[in-house]
Design a protein around this nucleic acid. Sequence first.
DNA 1: TATCAGGCCCTAG
DNA 2: CTAGGGCCTGAT
Length: 272
Amino acid sequence: MIRVQIPNFDLSQICASGQCFRMRETEPGHFTVPAGDRCVRIVQEGEICEFDCGEGEFEDFWKPYFDLDQDYGAYIEKINPRDSYLITAAARGSGIRILRQDLWETIVSFLISQQNHIGRIRRCIENICTEYGSAHESPWGETYYGFPQPEALAGLPEDALKACNLGYRSKYVVRTARSAVSKEIDLEAVSRMPYKKAREELMNLYGVGGKVADCICLFALHHLEAFPVDTHIRQAMERHYRRGFPNRRYRGFQGVMQQYIFYYELTGNAAD
DNA sequence: TATCAGGCCCTAG
DNA sequence: CTAGGGCCTGAT
């Protein structure tokens, strides 16, 4: 059990920010976080968190996963004080972190996310894990399912994942799994590429367009300059940044700002 | 009952 | 290169 104090860290916000579809708040302040074949339980009260794992695993895996060494207050301080919209959005989501999720898992997750609702996205991924992932025993005695490797999906017929409720996205996932297994795309290599190159490479995958590629770059590869534009962000841009988002000012960490805006738009901003 | 979700593919012009 | 139809399913 690891007990730590972390400023600008709020698991509820991260859970709702939609970067990770497997993370759950089981009861207020109690979280289960699956990642790849791992799983950890965390209890949060204010800035104090208790990670239900050993120190080695915390340092080596979860600390980088949640980007805990980064000072997000520093990002927030760089926001233009005259930009009241972004100031408000960042205040609302000040506990958000940009995660470092597994590349393969993130590719599949965001292939599934397109033209889809969050609830269904979660169910789809859950279905895939229980159907094709391997069972594991958690330290606290629960069995959970890991995320299946590409090999587990590459041999399926293209529409097999419709049984997991993916609909027309089934073939996107299966074909992408085949590309990974055949090394048509080298995920190891992609993970070492700079943003633009990685984005370009990912867009060669069947079903991966610009928006999905940016989500993968941001939420798995930690390219903070990636700025995924979906319908919510597009609307926010039209309402608040008619002259374009000030990319110059936030160069290199626009993705962090995107998350503040996305979370703010998603969780409702009626209290403006 | 229609519309449209955290898009992308494909085909026409 | 740009525009527009089609696509699974389900929430509203």
